[in-house]
Design a protein around this nucleic acid. Structure first.
Lengths: 120, 120
DNA sequence: TAAACATATGAACAATTATTCATATAATAT
DNA sequence: ATATTATATGAATAATTGTTCATATGTTTA
């Protein structure tokens, strides 16, 4: 991230208008963080599985063809990002998606990809 | 990515059912790729700016407080992911968002974050 | 044609991150 | 109590990635 002089600006008025409209850097950072958490194949598999049912760690590892440790690490990331929640039943921990935004984001991205497939 | 034996599985029936339902690894990979492209602050700023108007590279650099080079590199990433399109007018290249899915994803993630703010 | 301008690109570097391995914690069952 | 099972965690490693710097390409203007 760097600051520039006036060099390279084509439409200063438009630039200033948009600068005023834009959300804060903090909000944009937080939004990017959410997407970053979605942006990993293993985590995407976990999310895709949790769309179908609440699941425990071992079962997720089996479904996603990953190790128990890898899944546990990734579930921690998903938990911190508030994308999944969990409940304990004895020694078993059941994970599920946190709210309906998660599946909405998933569905729209899936649609975007699938339309890209057709579109050629 | 590793394969496991039968160890750690709690509900084999559920596991097998979900294995059948799950989208292909290829599709899940592609979905994760889209999110990965959203998952960077600089690219999120670019997208947020392009929600307001079509913009050329220099103006985006000014708005996002980045260098021309950094923006150009990131626009290439966005272009490859089909998240933005562009048109040339002389030496100036105007970029804009590719389709309505982009703003939908942005809005839902923004809502998710903002509700998270309130929710405490 | 030369200078100026807008954008693109390649290489290098620093930073981030996903997985593995070993081990720790915590709950249940024998 | 001890063994077993489910999950979590810390350290190390390998791979990915965003930015910078220098420079190249392409377009317009003088």
């Amino acid at each position: 991230m760097e600051q520039e002089t006036n060099e390279g600006i084509v439409d200063l008025e438009k630039v200033n208008k948009i600068k005023k409209i834009m959300p804060s850097d903090d909000l944009l950072f937080d939004i990017a963080e959410v997407f970053k958490v979605f942006g990993d194949t293993t985590r995407m598999k976990i999310i895709s599985a949790l769309l179908e049912a609440e699941l425990c760690v071992g079962d997720i590892a089996e479904i996603t063809n990953s190790t128990q440790s890898a899944i546990s690490h990734q579930l921690r990331v998903l938990k911190q990002a508030k994308l999944v929640k969990f409940r304990k039943d004895g020694k078993i921990v059941y994970y599920s998606l946190d709210d309906e935004h998660i599946s909405e984001l998933y569905e729209i991205a899936k649609k975007h990809i699938e339309e890209g497939y057709e579109h050629r």
